[in-house]
């Protein structure tokens, strides 16, 4: 027997209940569908789409909260590509995303599978891995600043046990961004583990049992039953990880403010400072538009990779 879960096709059901006329059913489904979808469409239209349109319009102006403003066409955009802070932020953000996304996804899936076993103290472990998500960022930042403290820090103390020379971590331009990535991975595990855990409940036990009967190895079960069943959720985690890493802000803001120099400056930090410290809302809007395009490109690549992955 095949242990590959049929992925349900999007939208149209293939078979139709015999008792009903095909057209009636379709109409009733379409009507129900739109009714169910309307509140979300209305809500997102008002509270997200309209603001985004406002951002698009603002990006063509030099609005800076003053009495007067004027249209500048694509002036903001052409300035952006000569803005060293923006280019540095873009580069750091892309680097951050490329490193953090695969590592954090792999670790959280592994931990989720571990936590899906029948083990003692499961509740404790699940809660423990979720705690960084609920711990206030200010507390997280403070302790990581201690861990990375060049003088009395825990990281150097630990490494010195192995005779490794002390590092300057966040204070060293060369290691600041990688140090920040570690915290980002650490903090983001909780939510991903939860989503994977929830998804692992949906993996058909019948299929796993029949694979057992077939004498499949653990790895075979994972590859042939669990992995395909996780497909839709993998996609969700990938997309949200891309968005989340591109929009990393709080952590950088409280830990380094983008320093030393601009070594850990990331896009949302740059946008935020342009908008609310420098009060250049028009310029920050143009920057946001570029950022959204870049994320969209990444998502496009992510979808291609995923399609290649689920096809084999």
């Amino acid at each position: 027997m095949s242990t590959t879960l049929e992925r349900p096709a999007l939208g149209t059901p293939r078979k139709v209940a015999p008792a009903k006329d095909r057209g009636t059913l379709l109409r009733s489904q379409v009507r129900t569908g739109w009714t169910l979808l309307t509140p979300a469409l209305l809500h997102s239209g008002i509270f997200i789409v309209i603001p985004v349109i406002a951002v698009l319009v603002l990006s063509l102006t030099d609005y800076s909260f003053g009495d007067t403003w004027s249209w500048v066409g694509f002036g903001n955009y052409s300035t952006l590509f000569r803005d060293v802070d923006f280019l540095a932020s873009l580069w750091h953000t892309v680097l951050y995303a490329i490193v953090v996304i695969p590592i954090s996804m792999a670790i959280s899936l592994a931990v989720a599978i571990g936590l899906n076993q029948k083990i003692k103290g499961i509740g404790f472990f699940r809660t423990a891995f979720y705690i960084p998500t609920v711990t206030a960022t200010v507390a997280i930042a403070t302790i990581w600043l201690w861990i990375y403290n060049p003088g009395s820090g825990l990281a150097n103390g630990f490494l010195s046990l192995f005779g490794v020379a002390p590092n300057r971590w966040l204070a060293d331009p060369a290691t600041a961004l990688p140090s920040l990535m570690v915290v980002g991975i650490w903090q983001g595990l909780g939510t991903k583990i939860i989503i994977y855990l929830a998804a692992l409940q949906g993996v058909s036990r019948d299929l796993l049992e029949s694979a057992d009967l077939d004498g499949a190895s653990r790895w075979q079960k994972f590859a042939n039953v669990t992995w395909p069943a996780l497909g839709p959720v993998q996609f969700f985690v990938l997309i949200t990880s891309i968005v989340g890493t591109f929009q990393v802000f709080d952590l950088v803001y409280v830990m380094t403010r983008g320093g030393p120099g601009s070594e850990t400056r990331v896009l949302v930090l740059d946008i935020y400072q342009n908008a609310f410290q420098d009060l250049k809302l028009g310029y920050a809007s143009a920057e946001t538009v570029i950022m959204m395009i870049v994320i969209a490109l990444f998502i496009g690549v992510g979808r291609l990779l995923q399609r290649a992955d689920t096809n084999d």
Binding site: I48, A54, L58, Y272, M292, I299
Partner: peptide, 11 residues
Amino acid sequence: LLVPFQIILVP
């Protein structure tokens, strides 16, 4: 999902 909250704050 792409829309960063911080920047649509004003609109």
